Simulated scan of single mutants.
Amino acid sequence: MATEMTVELVAVEERLWSGSATMVSAQTTEGEIGIMAGHEPVLGQLVEAGTVAITSADGERRVAAVHGGFLSCTGAAVTILAESAEFAEDIDVEAARAVLAEGSDDPEVIAIAKGRVRAVERA
């Protein structure tokens, strides 16, 4: 049985990550899902203000904040198509926390800030 799968993390504006991985976990509207090579095919809707964690074939773990989108698994490949996504190490967590502290009339701005903070905390 294969222990690796092809994974792509794509946001509307760019491909953030592509390569071989041993594990992917994501927050979907049905709950958190963990996917390893050979997983049954599945399609899931990503939650607003969610996170995705990818463990690459060389053991590196990358966590990204994702905002909306879908996850598709074929058993040999996982594709994550997000409305927006950014890796935890690229996030200005203090700015995200400031948005949460100040509040906003725009629920999408709040959701994106929550996702950013979650990604940094999970990294």
Rank of each mutant, 00 (worst) to 15 (best):
D90G: 01
M23D: 03
G115S: 08
G115I: 06
I54P: 07
R97Y: 08
S18K: 07
L16G: 04
G59C: 09
V47Q: 09
V109K: 07
A26L: 12
A76W: 11
R97N: 14
A96N: 00
R62E: 13
G59R: 05
I110N: 04
S25G: 11
F87A: 05
A98Y: 02
V99S: 02
G19E: 07
I112V: 15
E83Q: 12
A49V: 06
L9S: 03
E121D: 15
E8W: 00
E86T: 14
V66H: 00
G69Q: 00
A77H: 09
G31M: 14
H39Q: 07
V7G: 10
K114F: 04
E40L: 15
A11T: 13
V120I: 08
S84F: 00
I112N: 00
A21I: 02
R15Y: 07
T6F: 11
L46Y: 00
E32K: 06
G38W: 11
Q27H: 06
E14F: 07
E32I: 04
A111C: 07
I33L: 14
R62Y: 11
Q45Y: 10
M1W: 08
S104N: 12
D105Q: 06
S20T: 11
T79Y: 03
T79Q: 12
L71T: 04
T79N: 11
T28I: 06
L71N: 01
V99I: 14
V78G: 06
W17R: 05
S25Y: 07
E83D: 15
T51I: 15
R118P: 03
V99M: 03
T22Q: 13
T6C: 12
F87I: 10
R62G: 05
R122A: 13
G115C: 08
I33Q: 12
E48W: 06
L100C: 11
S72N: 11
T22I: 09
S56P: 09
A64P: 05
A98R: 12
R62K: 13
S104R: 01
F87C: 06
T55Q: 13
A57N: 11
A2C: 06
T29S: 13
P107I: 08
E32L: 04
A21F: 01
G69I: 00
D92V: 10
E60Q: 04
G38M: 13
V66L: 05
G59E: 10
L16P: 00
E94Y: 04
T51P: 06
D106G: 03
M1Q: 14
T28S: 15
M1A: 14
L81C: 07
E48M: 10
D92R: 02
A113E: 05
E121C: 06
I80R: 01
E102N: 13
S72F: 10
T3H: 13
R122M: 04
E13R: 12
L81R: 00
A49K: 02
V93I: 09
L71P: 00
G19K: 01
K114E: 15
A76L: 10
D90I: 09
P107A: 07
A98T: 08
